[in-house]
Design a protein around this nucleic acid. Structure first.
Lengths: 345, 345
DNA sequence: ACATTTACCGAAAACGTTTTCGGGGTTATT
DNA sequence: AATAACCCCGAAAACGTTTTCGGTAAATGT
C-alpha cells in the first residue's frame, strides 16, 4: 500500500541504501551485477523515488508556477497550454494561478508560489499593477521569473512579448490600404502598456499615411466586454456617420461592433470595415468572419518556459540571471470584415 | 539570500529548534515570553517553513492535480477556474495537465501526478479511454480521485456530473414546444458516455411527445469543429429540406450550423431553429444569438474539489473513501436562434 | 522537610534521498 | 614481498521540520 523506499529494497537485497541509490543512478563504482539486481527489483516493486526527499536534498521541485490575469480567456489558456507542454518536455509540472486583474491578489498568489519553493515563475502582470517591488523582491531572493505579454520594462528579467505597437500599426495600415478614410479606434483599460502601445500603433499608422488624427474617434472599453463593442457601435455611428473603419482593441469587442453595425443595417465591410486583435477562436465563426491580428499564445507560453529554463540552469551553475527579451511575430489574418486590398499599380 | 530556517532562529536566540518549532505553532508547553521572542524574530527574518521538509514529514503536499482533455476550451477552463479557487480557499495549489483526448497521455500524466506525491486528483476522462485499470490502480493505492463531466460508473469514486440525458431532453423539448416538427441531431464522437446520453435525451424527448424517430436525422461530428457544423448544415438541408430544428452536441458546431444556414438563405429561427449545448462565451455574440444549455463549469470544478477534500479528510483519519455523486443542474438559455414558446392554453 | 505537581525546554528520531569519503579486499606492478 | 592501483561497497551526514519523551528546576502540597 504505502510507497516502496530505497530502504525496502536495500533490506531485501541485504545491501545498503547508498548502494541501491547509486545502482539506480548508474554510478560507475557499483558492480554491474549488483546494478542489475537492484534495477530489476526496483522495477518489480514499482519503486519511484520520493519527490519530497529529493526536493529537500536537491532544493529543486521540478515544479514551476504560472500566474495570469484570467484563465478563462482564449489567449491566456493558449499561453498556459504552450507553457505546460514545453515544461513537461523538460520534466517540469505547472501550477496555475490567477490574479483576476487584482494587485493584491498578484502579491498573494506570488507569495503562495514562493513559499512552495517552486523552481520558477511565469508571470503576466495584472492591469492594476503599477508598483513592482513585490516582483523585484522575489527575483532578488533568487527566484527565476519570466514576464510575458503584460510586462513592464521596469523589471530586469527575461520577457516574452509581442510588439503591440507594430501589430496595431499593421492592423490600421490594413484598413488604410483597403480604402478606409476615417478610422475609429476602440481602446482598452487605460493603464496597461498594451493599451498605450496599440493606441500608438494606430496613431503612427495614421501619421505615416498622412491621415488626420482625430481624438474624438477614440472610444474606450474599460472591461473589454462584447456588450461594450455593441454599445459603442451605436455611439460611434451617431457621432461620426462617415466612419468607414474600426480597429478594436480585442476580438470580443470587435464582434460586439459587428453585431451593433448589423442592427443598424450598416454593411460590413462595404460601409464600415472592422478589424480586431488576438484571433480568438470565435473570430472565424462570425458573419462576416473577422479580420484580426494573430497573437500566438501557444508560442508565447513555450518561449516563456524556455527562457525560464535558461535561468534555472544559470542558477544551478551559480551564474547570474539573463534578461533576454523575445519578441513573437504577429500577423494580420485577413477575413471578410475588411475589404480586399486596393492595387494602385 | 537563502531561506531562513528554524535552526537559524534557534541559534540567534540560543534555544533549540524544537522550541522554535513549537513556539511558532503555539504549543502549550512553551513560555509566553519565549513564544513572543521567537514569533517576532521569525516575522522579522521573514521565516517561512520549508515546504519539502514539511511534506516529507507530514506526507502531504497541499497540492492537487487536475487532468482535463483540453485546457483551451471554454467549459474546461471554467472547471479549472472553479477548482483552483475552491482549492486555494483551503490552502491547496493546483497542477494542471491535459490528455488531448489520448489514452496513453492519460496514463502518462496520471503517473506524473502520482509520482509527485500530490494529495489528490480531479479527472475528466479522455474520449478514447475505455479501460480503467490505470485509474482503479491509483485509487487502490490510496490516492483520492474525483471524476467530473467525462466519467464512467465503472470506477468507484466521487463524481460530479451534469445529467446529460435530462439536459438533452430539455433542449429537444424546447424545440418541440416552440413548434419544431422535424428535428435533426448532430452528435459527437461515438464512444463517450456524454455522446450517448445526449443522444438518448433527444430520442426520449421525441418519444415523449409522440414524434417519429428517424435515424437519418442523426449526423455526426467526430472532432466537434466549427467547420463540421458548417458542412453538415448543407448536407442536412440537402437530404431533408423540411428540417425545422437542429439540436447540436456543442455550441461550436451549432454556430457552424448557423453560418451554413445563413449562406443558404435559410432563416433562423423562422425556418430552422437551432439549439446548442454548453453556453460558451461566443454563443451570445452570434446573429442570431444562440439558444443553448448552460453547463456550469465553474460550479463543477468547485464541487469536484469539495468532494476531493472530503476524501482527503477521510484519508487523514484512516477512514474509507466515500463515493458521493453530485449532479449539477443545467438549464435552457433561451436566445434568438429558437422561436418563442407556443402557448396552447 | 520531603514529596509531588507544574512549567518549560531540549535531545533525538523520523520522513527518504543523495553524495562524499574512506575502508577492505583483490589484482597488478616493481 | 612490498607497494601501488583498482574495484566495490557502506557509514554517515545533510536537507528542514515535527513530535515524542524525558529531564531539570521551581512551585506547590502535606
Amino acid at each position: 500500500m504505502s510507497k516502496v523506499t530505497l530502504k525496502d529494497i536495500s533490506k531485501i537485497l541485504g545491501i545498503s541504501t547508498s548502494t541501491v541509490s547509486k545502482a539506480l543512478k548508474n554510478y560507475s563504482d557499483i558492480n554491474v551485477e549488483t546494478k542489475l539486481k537492484v534495477q530489476e527489483l526496483a522495477k518489480k516493486l514499482n519503486f519511484t523515488p520520493n519527490a519530497f526527499a529529493q526536493s529537500l536534498r536537491s532544493r529543486e521541485t521540478k515544479i514551476i508556477g504560472i500566474l495570469v490575469p484570467e484563465l478563462v480567456h482564449h489567449f491566456f489558456s493558449n499561453v498556459i497550454d504552450g507553457a505546460i507542454h514545453e515544461a513537461e518536455k523538460h520534466g517540469y509540472l505547472v501550477i496555475v494561478l490567477q490574479t483576476h486583474e487584482c494587485y493584491e491578489d498578484e502579491i498573494k498568489q506570488l507569495k503562495l508560489l514562493v513559499d512552495k519553493n517552486i523552481d520558477g515563475i511565469l508571470l503576466s502582470l495584472s492591469d492594476k499593477t503599477v508598483k513592482y517591488d513585490h516582483i523585484k523582491n522575489i527575483i532578488d531572493e533568487g527566484m527565476p521569473v519570466v514576464l510575458f505579454d503584460k510586462i513592464t520594462h521596469l523589471i530586469d528579467c527575461p520577457k516574452v512579448i509581442i510588439n503591440d505597437r507594430k501589430a496595431a500599426f499593421s492592423a490600421t495600415e490594413h484598413l488604410i490600404k483597403t480604402g478606409c478614410k476615417k478610422i475609429a479606434h476602440i481602446t482598452g483599460p487605460l493603464k496597461p502598456k498594451t493599451t498605450i502601445d496599440r493606441f500608438m500603433g494606430y496613431k503612427i499608422a495614421l501619421e505615416t499615411y498622412n491621415m488626420p488624427f482625430d481624438k474624438s474617434l477614440i472610444y474606450t472599453s474599460e472591461n473589454l466586454f462584447f456588450e461594450d463593442g455593441y454599445r459603442l457601435a451605436g455611439q460611434m455611428m451617431a457621432e461620426h456617420p462617415d466612419i468607414d473603419g474600426v480597429f478594436a482593441f480585442i476580438d470580443l469587442v470587435a464582434i460586439g461592433v459587428l453585431k451593433g453595425l448589423r442592427e443598424q443595417k450598416i454593411k460590413v465591410p462595404k460601409q464600415v470595415a472592422v478589424i480586431g486583435f488576438s484571433n480568438w477562436l470565435m473570430s472565424k465563426t462570425t458573419t462576416p468572419s473577422l479580420t484580426t491580428i494573430d497573437q500566438p499564445g501557444y508560442d508565447m507560453g513555450k518561449q516563456a518556459f524556455q527562457l525560464l529554463l535558461k535561468n534555472l540552469n544559470q542558477k544551478r551553475e551559480g551564474k547570474v540571471f539573463t534578461s533576454e527579451i523575445v519578441e513573437i511575430p504577429t500577423r494580420v489574418v485577413v477575413r471578410k470584415s475588411t475589404n480586399a486590398i486596393i492595387d494602385n499599380s
